[in-house]
Computed example of a mutant assay.
Amino acid sequence: MLDMDYSDSVYRPAEDSYMVMDHANPGARMLEIGAGSGIISIYFASLGKIVTATDISEDAIKLIKHNAEKNNVRINVIESDLFENVNGKYNTIIFNPPYLPVEGESPQWSGGSDGFKVISRFLNDAWKYLEKHGNIYIVLSDLTDINLLIKNYNNRYNFKKIASMDFDFESIFLYELTVIS
């Protein structure tokens, strides 16, 4: 059981975070983009993974470091807008992105008018940071046009739905992506 602290200025873990923790199977070297409180990175570090966690928010970076120390795990923490300050290649990249199709809201959950503003930027570059045979886990919502996203990136990635959760207002999905050779 993890002992976590939270902040009003940082995305608080919700069902999407726990779905990743329950269903992702990362390789030995893992990168989490947009780690928020750090719960996913800390969980996998506690299982022995070598983890790098990033976030664009300075508050999130402080919280990840605090929570990692509190849970006695070592994580490389980098302040970064997606891959801006990331170097190297990883077996697995995890991204629980801002996916809601809204504008002008908090960047913690605002994915732009179509929900893909941040996701598209991520998918344009993610493959460059994967080891051969690496994988990506990403959370998507049915409030967006997931089929269009897949169509736009099916020349670069294979998409495999591995988990879902249904709510009154939306369904969320965890996809595993692999790079097409």
Rank of each mutant, 00 (worst) to 15 (best):
L123P: 00
A14S: 15
I93W: 06
N91I: 13
E69M: 14
F173D: 04
I39F: 00
E131G: 00
N72G: 01
I78C: 00
F173K: 10
H133L: 12
L63E: 04
L31C: 07
N135G: 00
E32G: 08
Y137T: 01
A60K: 00
F169L: 13
K65P: 03
N124I: 13
N135D: 13
D3C: 05
F169T: 15
K151L: 12
A60W: 01
A60L: 01
D114F: 10
F159Y: 06
Y6W: 12
I172V: 15
G27I: 07
S110H: 11
D22A: 12
N155Y: 12
Y99F: 14
V20C: 07
K151D: 07
D166T: 15
V77L: 02
I42T: 06
Q108I: 15
F95S: 01
S17D: 11
F159E: 02
S164L: 12
P13K: 09
P26F: 13
M21Y: 10
K132G: 03
L82G: 01
P26W: 12
D145I: 09
K160W: 10
Y153D: 04
I119G: 04
I136E: 10
N67E: 00
D81F: 07
T92I: 05
H133R: 15
L2D: 06
E58M: 00
Y129V: 14
G104Y: 07
P107V: 02
L130W: 03
K65C: 03
D81L: 01
D8Y: 15
A126S: 04
M21N: 06
S17H: 09
S41G: 15
E131Q: 02
G115S: 02
I180Q: 10
L47V: 05
K70C: 00
N158V: 14
G115V: 04
A45C: 03
P101E: 09
K49Q: 08
L174Y: 06
